[in-house]
Amino acid sequence: MTRQSTFRVAAAGLALVASLLAVASPPARAQDEPRVIVITAKRFEFSPNQITLAKGETVKLQIKSEDVTHGLFVRPLGIDAEIAPGRVTELTLTPETAGTYRAICDHFCGAGHGGMKMTIVVRE
């Protein structure tokens, strides 16, 4: 095998690997999209009631209500959202400090409102 043919084989191999990667992976634009976490609020709970994020990770929270207007409030993470029924409330979040944060409903929603909370864990 000549040096030229060796190059051609290597180039073909690279092209094959590249095409395989293109099939196996989402498009480059999708790789930049934040992870989406769906949260459902209903009296008097959030589901899931705990989510785990990585420090510095950008995530998109999609929050919806199954009944009345709720709130999602976490002062240290800068979250203060109104969650009205009939639409999805989106929040983009990039936590910078690891820790365990309590998120509460801060829109009064009935007698059990005071216990409506969830946990956001941010790992190093």
Partner: peptide, 9 residues
């Protein structure tokens, strides 16, 4: 204590 809703925004 904001995470107990002991605050006014």
């Amino acid at each position: 204590r904001p995470d107990w809703e002991w605050f006014t925004s």
